[in-house]
């Protein structure tokens, strides 16, 4: 996984991609000259300070933003087409659950929109709630669940569409550290079991190094890639791996990458 994937087989192929927002204070270069190929089954983390464009890049992949120049292909087609083909599941910072729907009906929402048959919807809700360890909570409403459980429901909902690509935008950012560690382990296990490709936005160095096969370090003004750091921990790693010398060395390299991008400057 150290080698960049061949663009032909890449799940996501990005070359020389730039995005400029026009604001009242003039144009803002949100992304500049991004090159990235993501191979099937990879777990990619995008890390960087606020304003480095990591969420914007994820949104471009999801066709929630449109790039201004360069090329991007998702599953070999444009992001818009990929979205129409339901190529990805997107998990937002907040659980974004509907308060008037039970957990089960929240998971079935995208399937209802896709027009999946009722029995299949029910079956998938059962299957994916089990996968995120929420069996028994099907008929609860979101307010009856903790923040961590709500975010797991949103993961089950993204999985229910059975996409090969998962786009996750700081999904555990709002949770306490204990819950976050727990969910990181669960996510890793889920990735191992399903073999999905994951693009994961975070601003936590340990989270990025622990989860990823490659960490993409980004820096702001303009948003660009500073460093691409491979991490090759065994697939069945536990949280203990964070105490090893290898882990600390990679974490150090990520930190150096962030420093090189002047990410620690006061401004």
């Amino acid at each position: 996984m150290n080698q960049p994937a061949q663009s032909a087989s890449a799940v996501v192929h990005i070359s020389d991609l730039s995005l400029e927002f026009s604001t009242d204070d003039g144009p803002v270069q949100a992304l500049s000259g991004i090159d990235l190929d993501i191979a099937p089954g990879e777990f990619i983390s995008l890390i960087g300070p606020s304003g480095c464009g990591k969420t914007t890049l994820l949104r471009v992949i999801a066709d929630l933003e449109t790039h201004t120049s360069g090329e991007i292909l998702v599953n070999g087609v444009s992001p818009g087409e990929a979205r129409q083909n339901r190529a990805y599941g997107y998990i937002f910072q907040a659980p974004a659950l509907y308060p008037w729907r039970t957990v089960r009906r929240n998971v079935m929402l995208p399937l209802e929109i896709m027009g999946t048959a009722r029995e299949e919807r029910e079956a998938r809700a059962v299957r994916y709630l089990e996968l995120v360890n929420l069996t028994g909570f099907e008929n609860k409403y979101p307010w009856q669940l903790s923040g961590g459980m709500q975010q797991r429901v949103s993961i089950a909902r993204a999985l229910s569409v059975e996409p090969q690509l998962l786009l996750m935008d700081e999904p555990f950012g709002a949770l306490d550290e204990i819950t976050r560690d727990h969910l990181n382990q669960q996510l890793l296990e889920l990735w191992r079991k399903t073999g999905k490709t994951v693009v994961f936005v975070t601003h936590s160095i340990p989270e990025a190094v622990f989860l990823s096969t490659r960490v993409i370090v980004m820096s702001p003004r303009p948003g660009r890639v500073m460093d691409v750091i491979p991490c090759n921990f065994p697939k069945d790693r536990t949280l203990d791996v964070r105490e090893t010398a290898d882990f600390l060395e990679i974490a150090h390299r990520v930190r150096e990458g962030l420093k090189a991008g002047h990410s620690y400057d006061d401004d």
Binding site: Q84, R86, A96
Partner: peptide, 12 residues
């Protein structure tokens, strides 16, 4: 919220 509208967009 915009996040819910975006989510609907991702579902096409």
């Amino acid at each position: 919220e915009p996040i819910l509208v975006d989510q609907m967009h991702t579902y096409s």
